[in-house]
Structures are given as C-alpha cells and as structure tokens.
C-alpha cells in the first residue's frame, strides 16, 4: 500500500500537496469506509452476535465439538480458575451456578466447574445462512425485478425530461422563465414527508396505486435534477449553439447532439443520483404499493422490522445484497463524470 501510494508520477516528485491529498484520502477511507465495512462484516453475524453488547468487529461463534456419548455437539469452554484452569472442556449442562463438564479426551468422567470460572471458546465464522435464508423466505428475484424495472424506467424518464427542461431554462430567453425556475426551486422547500398523503390521493385518482408506474411517474420530474442540469448547462458557452444554428441545425438536434454530450458529467451525476434514489426509495413505494408481488427490495428488506424487534441479521444481509448492484453501476458511471469539456477539449 505504501509503495503504491508513494510511487511518483512520471519524473516529478510528489509535491507536498500530494502528500496532504493522500493523507486526507487515507483518513477518508478509514472514516467513510470503515463503518460500511463493519456493516458488511456484521451481515455475516448471527442474530445473537449482533445483540452482543459491547459489539465486536468480527463475526464470532462459540466452538462446538461432538463428544462421544452425546448426541448433540457440546459447547466448548475454557476453564479460567481451579484445578482445571487453562483446559478446554465441553459443557453437558448447567445447574444453577455449577457447570457439568467433560474433557473431550475423557468423555466418561463428569466434572463440576463453577459457572463463573469458565469462558466460551469462540472462533470467527461466517453466518452465510443469513443470506441463504433470504432466498428461501421469499421471492427475492421478483423484488429484484421490480426494483430494477422501477429504477431503470424512472431514471431514463428523469434524464430525458429533466435535461429537456434544463435546456429550455438555461439556453432560451422567454417570458415566464424566472417564474418556472422559482416554482421548481420553491417546491423543494416543502419537505417530501408532508406531501406524501396529498400525493397519494392524486396518484390514486390517476389510478396508479399499486402499480409500478405509480412509483415511477410521480418522482420523474425532480426539481433537484432540473436545477442541477440547468446550472451545469449555463457553463456551456452560447457561441457553440449559435454556430450550430448557423449550420441550420434544428433546436432538437442542438439539444441532443451538442448539449447532452457536453453535459455528460452532470448527466452522469444525475443518473447516479436517480438510480440511487429509486433503488433505495422506501417511503413512497411503501405507500404506493400494496401487493407483495409488486414490492421492491427496500420494502421486502424493511419487512424484517416488526413492532418490537428487528431481524437485523436478515436485514443486514439483504442490505448488502441490495448494495451490490448499485455499487457496480456507480463504478461504471463515475468514469463519465470526468469526461466533460475538459477532456474532450470542447472549446
């Protein structure tokens, strides 16, 4: 890792700002990635281990051993005091404060050890059953399909509709432009939680409740997206457009042949954000979808949350599974963020 970080680029030595940058990034990895990594590790813990207080980093389980003469594997303890101190014993049963144990080497002789003088022997083991249970428990692929369909369709619609609007709002002077812009930003001010119920009633009147389209359509015209794209398009010089108009290019052609490619970084960002929003959306699908066959991954994931308890082992395993596709998409799309005017040498 150090060798990799200190390798200099070309002939130049690392500037001090490079050192600062790498120091910052290392700290960032620790702080940003550490908790995420802990979550991923924890998804391999048993429910009991997740309840451990204080929490531990790695997934542990108690060592179990099959001892001749006993049907079930017995838990292994290490004796901490008394004549057996330091030895590993298998516990048969516990009565009050006394443990009845045997040495695995001598399963016939039952010994007694005070309850507080024993310590469980543990080893790291991955509870992969957290994952396999998910597939037994419900139709994972159905939810996966629903989530994917919603995410892909919604993102395509969002990108098209928002970029068209942003183009109009950034590259045309027309009466009402300021008003439209103000309305779009203004609606951002009302917290989404508050409008859920009115929105639900409207979507019901459109007859889209309990359909995937009822999840896709309402959020497609995101104010954030229009705002983001519009601000980016403002930085594209108007001269490019005028030159194209001189060449008799239609406005639509200018939009998709010039503006869209030049806005690639912002479009990529909006694509990533839209995919993320849709994939992780919970509140709106929860109210808009009712039949289980229409549920998304997030809804299925949250059904592990009951009134009093949460099945964290399953919930975390499912969280990790739902993270995988979106991480892959991010890895693919983030490249486009760096392909703007700068690298195409646009002007």
């Amino acid at each position: 890792m150090t060798a990799f970080l200190t390798r200099t680029r070309g002939r130049k030595r690392l500037h001090w700002t490079d050192w600062m940058a790498y120091a910052y990034l290392t700290l960032g990895v620790l702080l940003m990635f550490g908790p995420v990594l802990w979550l991923v590790l924890s998804s391999f813990k048993t429910e009991r281990e997740l309840q451990n207080y204080p929490p531990r980093l790695l997934p542990y389980v108690q060592k179990m051993e099959t001892v001749p003469g006993y049907d079930k594997p017995l838990p292994i303890y290490k004796v901490t005091a008394g004549p057996l101190a330091g030895q590993e014993v298998a516990q048969i049963r516990r009565i009050g404060l006394i443990s009845q144990v045997v040495k695995p080497s001598d399963p016939k002789t039952v010994l007694k050890v005070p309850f507080k003088d024993r310590k469980a022997v543990e080893h790291v083991a991955l509870a992969t059953s957290n994952y396999s249970k998910l597939f037994e428990r419900f139709n994972f692929f159905r939810f996966f399909y629903n989530s994917t369909f919603i995410t892909v369709m919604a993102t395509l619609i969002t990108l098209l509709v928002n970029s068209m609007a942003a183009f109009a709002l950034s590259k045309y002077q027309f009466r009402g432009r300021g008003l439209v812009m103000a309305l779009i930003i203004g609606t951002l001010m009302i917290p989404p939680t508050v409008v859920l119920v009115p929105l639900f009633l409207i979507v019901r009147d459109f007859g889209m409740i309990d359909s995937l389209w009822g999840v896709i359509i309402p959020g497609a015209a995101t104010p954030t997206g229009v705002f983001l794209l519009r601000q980016y398009m403002l930085t594209i010089p108007d001269e490019i457009l005028d030159a194209a108009r001189m060449d008799k290019a239609s406005e639509w052609k200018i939009y998709w042949r010039i503006i869209l490619p030049l806005s690639a970084p912002a479009i990529a960002v909006l694509a990533i954000l839209s995919i993320m929003w849709r994939w992780n959306d919970f509140l709106w699908p929860l109210i808009a979808l009712q039949k289980q066959e229409n549920f998304t991954l997030q809804l299925a994931l949250n059904s592990f949350r009951g009134e009093f308890t949460t099945d964290w082992a399953s919930l975390l395993a499912m969280t990790v599974l739902t993270l995988v596709p979106i991480v892959v998409v991010f890895a693919f799309l983030q490249k486009y963020i760096a392909t703007g005017i700068a690298s195409t040498g646009g002007k």
Binding site: V161, A165, T187, I217, P218, A221
Partner: peptide, 11 residues
C-alpha cells in the same frame, strides 16, 4: 413534459 409531471405530482 417536465412541467406536466411536475405540475401534477410535485406542485
């Protein structure tokens, strides 16, 4: 298109 969706489902 944006205003239509925006009008009904956001505004």
């Amino acid at each position: 298109p944006n205003l239509f969706l925006f009008g009904f489902f956001t505004f």
